[in-house]
């Protein structure tokens, strides 16, 4: 279980990027977060990943507070961020620095097979398409078998076909060992198609504005009336969430 307890982040320049965000993500749950640009989605994810320290509040994974980056939490960024001087296999192995060679090799082969890139183990990152590079990034995050996988707009730089393809792929990977997953996206369809829940974030300061549970089984028909209805509701919420918060949440000050 991933818990955010009144988490806030004020940057050194005084900007309050996230204010009093509370959230519980159940084990193996897939939560999608949508929100306008600059509303603090990436900051929220970086707080969960331990890449930023909260100014107030606490993030806990399985009851333990998160103090910094840990192998239990994997993260995939908007850009693949592959090391250009490492082959695909070595990039995936990057996450396994501490493991014995043979064990690491096996894990790398296995995860590359799962993302469908076993034939590209020896390729250089420059030889990959955008979608393939992002699959390597996902493989690198998954190879340590994290309890939680965080994705920050992972498909936003890809064309529509590749994006659909990778969305299906992501669900298949998630089904394999069911990590808790938080997916930030600005694609509302993607959020509704993939999430067990969709959270709508509002900005200035960043906060979780509303949430919507999606019970329909996957794969979801994107033209079904319920899907379209959910989309309309989220669009309305996004519009409302864009207005600055009148005041911080009750009983909260930093």
């Amino acid at each position: 279980m991933l818990e955010l307890d009144l988490v806030a982040k004020r940057f050194a320049n005084g900007h309050l990027a996230v204010a009093a965000a509370s959230l519980v993500v159940r084990e193996s749950e897939l939560v999608a977060i949508v929100g306008g640009s600059g509303c603090g989605k990436s900051t929220l994810l970086r707080l969960i990943a331990g890449l930023e320290r909260p100014s107030a509040g606490q993030v806990r994974l399985a009851g333990r507070p998160i103090e910094g980056p840990s192998p239990e939490i994997g993260i995939v960024f908007q850009e693949p961020r592959l090391m250009p001087w490492l082959s695909v296999a070595d990039n995936v192995r990057f996450g396994l620095a501490a493991r014995p060679r043979i064990e690491a090799d096996k894990a790398v082969r296995e995860v590359l097979r799962r993302v469908g890139l076993e034939d590209f183990a020896k390729a250089w990152p420059r030889e990959l398409s955008g979608g393939m590079a992002q699959r390597v990034a996902i493989a690198r995050a998954l190879v340590t078998r994290p309890k939680a996988l965080l994705l920050d707009e992972p498909f936003s730089a890809l064309d529509a076909f590749t994006r659909l393809d990778l969305q299906d792929h992501l669900i298949a990977l998630w089904n394999h060992d069911r990590p808790t997953m938080v997916l930030v996206t600005h694609d509302i369809d993607e959020a509704i198609a993939l999430g067990d829940r969709v959270l709508v974030m509002g900005g200035r300061p960043g906060r979780i504005y509303r949430e919507l549970s999606i019970a329909a089984p996957r794969p979801r028909d994107r033209t079904a009336p319920a899907f379209v209805q959910a989309k309309r509701a989220i669009l309305d919420d996004l519009r409302l969430a864009r207005r600055p918060a009148a005041e911080p949440a009750d009983g909260y000050a930093i």
Binding site: L51, P69, P71, E79, R81, M83, W85, F94, A97
Partner: peptide
Amino acid sequence: RKLVEVGRVHGLSHARIIRRVLLPAAL
């Protein structure tokens, strides 16, 4: 900076980040 952050995400120490990210990138 984004590549250095990948090193941090994977829990690499300063020395490891220099050796595995900074030096190859600066090569």
